[in-house]
Design a protein around this nucleic acid. Structure first.
Ligand SMILES: [Mn+2]
Ligand SMILES: [Mn+2]
Ligand SMILES: [Zn+2]
Ligand SMILES: [Zn+2]
Lengths: 143, 143
DNA sequence: TCTTGGATTATAATAATTCTCGTTTAAGAA
DNA sequence: TTCTTAAACGAGAATTATTATAATCCAAGA
């Protein structure tokens, strides 16, 4: 069984990326726990292990990992960058008010055939992401 | 037939908002043409009529109109504020790469019963908004 | 070990948005 | 119509999230 360290070096090598210490711990900070991670949260985490790391490095490498498919950007339209390590196709349920994001693992509520018919010619829906907006329980309780 | 001017005064009165000149022209700038409007575009438009108006006033009032339901925020998660005057329930198709937004008027591709079953208890989906992400023709042509 | 190009850092810059606060104005009361 | 006053306005500063720059550092192959 390969260590997390070796696993990352292998992944990085496959993408032609240098396996630096900073990249190692940034990648681990995201993938060690499931769910959605903000840049600030990742930064706080990695700074614990390597205090000299800079926020720009975290931004740059999270974006790099997303580009190379090692991580996934949670919402491509979001006002703040969120990433996750779960690369399985899944969708999101988002609160309009507080912007909290949670996973919708089943996709059976979308008819992708009909959807494709509604999209304009040439629109690529081969890897679709669906985001559904509503009000989370907490926010809808606040009237 | 009421003039646009009178229509707005009536709407503002219903919401308990003062019908100021600035609000009038901001509202008209959005509702005069269909589609999605950025803050900058609205600002450019209203500045033509009232050069002394400030960007802050445009932001403040667009948000106020959205709060009161006079306008709709296109994507509640977007990195840039976009508003539209079309209050009919409809959904959006968004390009992951260039962030272009277009309307999806039919909602027949979503099974809202099944969706409700997938959402956690208490999540309010009474006025759901669905955003589907893919690649527009232009962006998917670029590899 | 040595070389070299990519990676990292501090810092500056930028873009979008919000805040602050003194001034002006809309709209109801007199 | 004039007065009063809370609400709205405008200018610019401040804030927040993010990206660009440029000098230094280091990972990895020769
Ligand atoms: Mn997710
Ligand atoms: Mn629309
Ligand atoms: Zn919420
Ligand atoms: Zn596009």
């Amino acid at each position: 069984m390969a260590s997390a360290h070796e696993q990352f070096r292998d992944l990085a090598w496959k993408c032609g990326l240098a396996a630096t210490h900073q990249r190692q711990i940034i990648y681990e900070a995201v993938t060690a726990t499931p769910g959605h991670h903000s840049v600030e949260a990742v930064f706080a985490e990695v700074r614990g292990r390597t205090p000299s790391i800079s926020l720009a490095t975290v931004y740059k490498n999270l974006r790099l990992f997303v580009e190379h498919g090692l991580l996934r950007e949670v919402s491509p339209h979001s006002s703040m960058l969120l990433v996750e390590g779960n690369l399985e196709p899944h969708h999101h349920l988002i609160c309009t008010r507080c912007k909290a994001v949670q996973d919708l693992d089943a996709a059976d509520f979308v008819n992708f055939k009909k959807l494709a018919r509604r999209a304009p010619r040439g629109f690529d829906l081969s890897r679709p992401l669906v985001e559904v907006f509503g009000l989370c329980r907490r926010c809808s309780a606040k009237t």
